[in-house]
Write a protein that binds this DNA or RNA. Structure first.
Length: 440
RNA sequence: GUGGGUGUAGCUCAGUCGGUAGAGCACUGGUUUGUGGUACCAGAAGUCGCGGGUUCAAGCCCCGUCACCCACCCCA
């Protein structure tokens, strides 16, 4: 009985042709993180379930992959990289610098129902600053995120910036005080970008016992959007009075502008964020192209000053941002912005006949020593077949060492893209091949 | 968890009024054996997701089921 080859729902194989652009993205991201002064950290995929539960809210808890291991321990796959970081900080406080700037690039798992741009296993790229409460840390993290997008060549992206304190002020302004009502109201508000003002109004109408006039006051405030982020904040302040959250947002905007990131950020009071642990600034990044605008956020995060304290006696402030690599890649692919990379080697060494195997291996070794990505024909047979194979997989140069060539101490170097070929002495082989490759 | 859509060759899909299977790409071989891309010829490849029902006859109609996709919810 044959075993049917298949993958779990929401889990995917990444084939070589897809790995190349993915690796390139990862390399860029890691470089940008390092350039912004973040150091790498890694943690286990599996945690004690109690570490993770209760940190993300009810919705999050439902999406945790959890099970009992062989020793009957309750364990869970990490749901994000933030809670594991909080655990690490609480556990290794003495061994870590403060403030801690770490980046973490790793897979996370969520038992979500898969859909477009949503997977059960996906890679997150996080930077966080632990141990600093001020606006500089917020701005550093956001600045790094914006730099990453720029370095990846993502143009149509916008960070929607908000603050939990601003949301609270909005809710009290609207007269919504009871926690359950606040939760529902926030949930309604969060849908703004999808259903618009009428939709949010409809959602608000569903909440029991909402004070009369609350929806109007809330919606009026939410529509306070001016031409510039700064003007939006001014308008909100005029409506709500003095709110420390507004001052904080103003500072962050100024700091980002000083870093050259003035564009790319907007104030959006409808950003709510479902994750429970956020306490200060919060943000989501959306792609502006309509084709992928509904794919959801590609880079989000915020300040979480009370999460680490849940693991110990010490309250440690932190702020971070998380880029969803797989979703971003999927979106860029849909927009046709991912180059279909040729896969594999640049040079292909043919094997003339059984006696020529030794020559092929020797030639390949020379090229590899010179840094040329080289493949030896592992399926022998007619030369024509081998050339065809070399061409199919996008090799740029083919090498032939026939009996005559060997006697003459030469190698045939063929430029597959132009069709030209010539014989070179063995000693000049690497130079000749590099020459062709350099012609692009 | 709720709603919608789709399941036919490795991939993308066509398949009319029900009459038991097709294309393109990919793959293999060939067009006289030291040369690929283009062209031409040939070949291999399908329990039509699975189970049941209606019918002389089902890829097509009906019921069930599973899987995948999309949307809601939530999120990266």
């Amino acid at each position: 009985m044959a075993i049917q080859p298949r993958t779990l729902k929401g889990f995917r194989d990444t084939l070589p042709q897809d790995m190349k652009p993915r690796r390139a993205m990862l390399q860029t991201i890691e470089g940008t993180f390092a350039r912004h002064g973040f150091a790498p950290l890694d943690t286990p995929a599996l945690e004690y379930a109690e570490i993770l539960t209760g940190k993300y809210g009810d919705e999050g808890d439902k999406l945790l992959y959890r099970f009992a291991d062989h020793g009957e321990r309750q364990v869970a796959l990490r749901y994000d990289l933030t809670v594991p970081l909080a655990r690490v900080v609480a556990q290794h406080r003495g061994a870590l610098p403060s403030p801690l700037r770490r980046y973490h690039i790793a897979s996370v798992w969520r038992a979500d129902k898969p859909q477009r741009g949503r997977f059960r296993e996906f890679m997150q790229c996080d930077v966080d600053i632990v141990g600093a409460t001020g606006p500089l840390a917020d701005a550093e993290v956001l600045s790094t995120g914006l730099s990453v997008l720029a370095d990846l060549g993502v143009t149509g992206a916008c960070i929607h910036l908000n603050h939990r304190g601003l949301l609270s002020a909005l809710l009290s302004h609207a007269g919504i005080a009871e926690p359950r009502m606040q939760l529902h109201a926030l949930r309604a508000v969060d849908k703004w970008d999808k259903v618009g003002e009428p939709g949010v109004r409809r959602e608000l109408a569903k909440i029991d016992d909402l004070p009369a006039g609350a929806p109007d006051r809330l919606l009026q405030a939410l529509e306070t959007v001016a031409d510039t982020p700064e003007a939006t904040l001014d308008a909100l302040e005029a409506l709500l009075g003095e709110v420390t959250a507004i001052d904080r947002l103003r500072e962050v905007l100024a700091l980002l502008a000083a870093a050259g990131h003035a564009g790319g950020v907007t104030i959006d009071p409808t950003i709510a964020r479902g994750l429970d642990y956020y306490t200060g600034v919060i943000y989501e990044t959306r792609l502006t192209d309509a084709k992928v605008a509904n794919m959801g956020a590609v880079m989000s995060g915020g300040r979480y000053d009370e999460l680490i304290g849940m693991f110990g006696k010490e309250q440690v402030p932190a702020v971070g941002i998380s880029l969803g690599l797989d979703r971003l890649l999927a979106a860029l692919r849909e927009l046709g912005l991912v180059a279909e990379a040729s896969q594999g080697a640049d040079a292909f060494v043919t094997v003339f006949n059984a006696a020529g195997r030794l020559d092929a291996m020797a030639v390949a070794a020379e090229l590899r020593a010179a840094g040329v990505a080289t493949e030896v024909a592992t399926l022998e047979g007619k030369l024509g077949k081998q050339f065809k194979r070399a061409d199919r997989r996008g090799c740029k140069v083919a090498l032939v060492v026939g009996p005559d060539d060997r006697d003459a101490g030469q190698v045939v170097v063929k430029d597959l893209r132009r069709g030209a070929q010539h014989k070179v002495a063995r000693g000049e082989l690497a130079a000749a091949v590099s020459d062709i490759l350099r012609q692009g």
